[in-house]
Design a protein around this nucleic acid. Structure first.
Lengths: 187, 187
DNA sequence: CTACAAAACTAACACCATTAGTTTTATAAT
DNA sequence: ATTATAAAACTAATGGTGTTAGTTTTGTAG
């Protein structure tokens, strides 16, 4: 064991996650984070390299948890059932973790290898779920891009208040997915 | 005329737009903006209330120009033709104005009345373009939400490097829209 | 040419991230 | 128990923000 066990990186990130979800990603600063941990700001540098690395870790955490939720949602399901479950899990995650979800894409440099790897997991899951629709080669890639666009666009617009009207959002999501799947069969 | 005509709000915003598109929205600070205008930071307060108002003005500018581009793209077109033109204009705008497009949604408080009004213009255009598909009441709303989700999701993921694979992106967009429209007819 | 109002300025403050150097402290070995 | 040590947490300092207050400059209108 270390000569002195203080905070762990995991604890720090967990507090940062709660901060992001509760107060918004603007509130994720080393100053407020340190305050939440009852330490002084410079002490954070014993565990993380700086604000950029923190943001990256948060993006990784978000992608990992999002993938977990999506994976759990589709086990034992196939076809339309699986896609709807996947979509619901995606949107539910963004609703329950608004800050963390936003950080998932608001990362400093998206080309980072670790970020790309984490994102790849989600892409692969979507590919699996769309496998039953017997799409050929490139068409599968286009379809995956379409579904991801739908999910991210919906989650993002919902979060940013883009949908003004008082019409049920879950109904919208279900119908949108239904429409997309119907289109897959007729093109 | 004023006792002393210096900078105009329009000039300031134009420089800010170029800054956002060229260097990214992180670079949009009063400090760098002032430097680009060859004045000191506090002088900006003679024209704008602060950073928040600047961001809001940029969001409004972005929404206005995006709507213009979309409107120009659909004149004289109907049906699938119009939707594809709309989609192309949307994505083209986000590609040519990455920073400004991002600021369109990254505004401090999305509930702002002026922001809502500007966004409403885009929604109404999308409604018009989907009118030919004889959607009933609520279904029209769901369809508009779907198309907006697709467009924003695609533009956002493309910009954030979410689409890794070296497969043609314009082809993806075309096929995605085609799929969505086909789905509208078969549900 | 003069008065004035707006524009631009300097000075100052609070907040932020970050670095360097010091002190504290929990553990591991004696 | 005592002590050495390495990590954790600290203080102090620097440079970058946005913002406010108060002063100076300057172009235009009379």
């Amino acid at each position: 064991m270390s000569p002195r066990m203080g905070l762990t990186k995991e604890q720090i990130i967990e507090v940062a996650v709660e901060l992001a979800n509760r107060e918004g990603i603007e509130a994720v600063t080393l100053a407020t984070l340190a305050k939440g941990l009852n330490i002084k700001t410079p002490s954070l540098y014993n565990h993380i390299e700086g604000l950029e690395e923190l943001k990256k870790q948060l993006a990784l955490t978000g992608l990992t948890r999002l993938l977990e939720n999506m994976t759990d949602a589709v086990v034992g399901k196939v076809g339309d059932d699986a896609v709807h479950a996947l979509a619901n899990a995606y949107v539910q995650f963004s609703r329950e973790n608004p800050g963390l979800y936003e950080l998932t894409l608001a990362t400093p440099n998206p080309e980072d290898v670790e970020i790309q790897e984490a994102g790849k997991g989600i892409v692969e899951l979507v590919i699996q779920v769309l496998e039953n629709y017997k799409l050929k080669d490139e068409d599968a890639i286009h379809a995956v891009r379409g579904l991801r666009s739908l999910l991210h666009g919906f989650a993002s617009l919902e979060q940013k208040g883009g949908f003004g009207l008082p019409v049920n959002l879950d109904k919208s999501l279900h119908l949108i997915i239904t429409t997309f799947l119907a289109g897959l069969l007729h093109t």
